[in-house]
């Protein structure tokens, strides 16, 4: 008589009536990405945070009035400090988004995994929001989380309440700016990943969409104000308003806002078009 026989065993448990499949997709994706080179990259991304943290430490410990005016101005901790930090972090965010996001949908399409998702209680929005949250998690670690950390550090290190009284709404500006950055860059990466045939072409496509308009805007702006063609310039324009600073470029902020909203809508349309449970060969 066999001591163990392989047979089909019935499962006595019960499945959740409304499973949060978007959360399962996001959690699994975050774990998967973490195993790659991301830990090293996040460490590299932490360098500017350490640098800015050092700046806060110096400013709160040294009498700034004794420093030359130019240096004192550069070291000042105000809304501009946090705005510049967020703007700088975009350039670290781009490679991180590439590593995390290029394969998110492209690999699923390459390995024909979509029917495995959509034959389960997963719909288009569950799938897309799950994948998007993976980018939000890592993108947030680069942008929102360190900016909030620096804000807290500034409050903890300064003995006066003046800073807090002046900038108590700063966390909201940080979160709103982070949201704009992540929605635009995350949406763009997902759309490119859905459109591309593989990870490599997704990376190339994403870089092209970010840097080519940027370069064109730089060149053409010598003759005319066309910085609105650059995604990052539009983000900077909107972010400056969110931080209560003046517009850095000479076109209205609503133009930037509409262009960014248009990009997000376009990305959603591409995702709708490309994410099909099955590919039909015509």
């Amino acid at each position: 008589m066999p001591i163990h026989e392989a047979t089909y065993l019935q499962w006595e448990g019960a499945v959740l009536e409304r499973p949060m499949t978007w959360f399962v997709i996001a959690r699994t994706g975050v774990r998967l990405v973490w195993r790659r080179l991301l830990a090293i990259l996040l460490f590299i991304a932490a360098i500017p945070v350490i640098f800015r943290g050092g700046q806060i430490y110096v400013v709160t410990r040294v009498d700034v009035g004794e420093l030359p005016a130019r240096l004192a101005g550069a070291l000042q901790i105000d809304a501009g400090f946090f705005l510049n930090f967020m703007k700088d972090q975009i350039y670290i965010l781009v490679p991180i988004i590439c590593i995390c996001g290029a394969g998110l949908i492209a690999s699923d399409r390459k390995y024909k995994a979509l029917p495995l998702y959509f034959a389960r209680p997963v719909n288009f929005w569950d799938y897309v929001s799950g994948k998007f949250l993976i980018l939000v998690f890592y993108g947030g670690l680069i942008t929102i989380a360190p900016a909030l950390l620096l804000f807290v550090l500034q409050i903890l290190l300064t003995s006066e309440t003046g800073f807090f009284n002046a900038y108590y709404l700063m966390p909201l500006s940080i979160i709103a700016t982070g949201a704009v950055i992540l929605v635009v860059h995350g949406g763009l990466m997902l759309a490119v990943s859905a459109f591309a045939r593989g990870i490599r072409s997704a990376v190339v496509g994403y870089f092209a969409l970010i840097f080519i308009p940027n370069l064109l805007a730089r060149i053409l702006s010598v003759f005319r104000e066309v910085r609105w063609i650059s995604i990052n310039r539009n983000i900077e324009q909107v972010a400056s308003t969110l931080f209560g600073r003046g517009n850095p470029y000479s076109y209205p902020v609503w133009v930037g806002g509409i262009i960014l909203a248009g990009i997000v809508v376009l990305c959603l349309a591409v995702l709708r078009l490309r994410i099909k449970p099955t590919e039909v060969v015509k």
């Binding site: 399962v24 998967l32 024909k112 995994a113 029917p115 389960r120």
Partner: peptide
């Protein structure tokens, strides 16, 4: 349950990871 005709897998996962993931997507803890 659906076993598609295509050579479908969820890339990046181990065998146990993929089947567990499938179970969770179906609503299992």
């Amino acid at each position: 349950g659906y076993m598609p005709e295509d050579d479908s897998i969820i890339p990046g996962l181990t065998g146990i990871g993929m089947v567990r993931y499938a179970g969770e997507l179906s609503g299992m803890s």
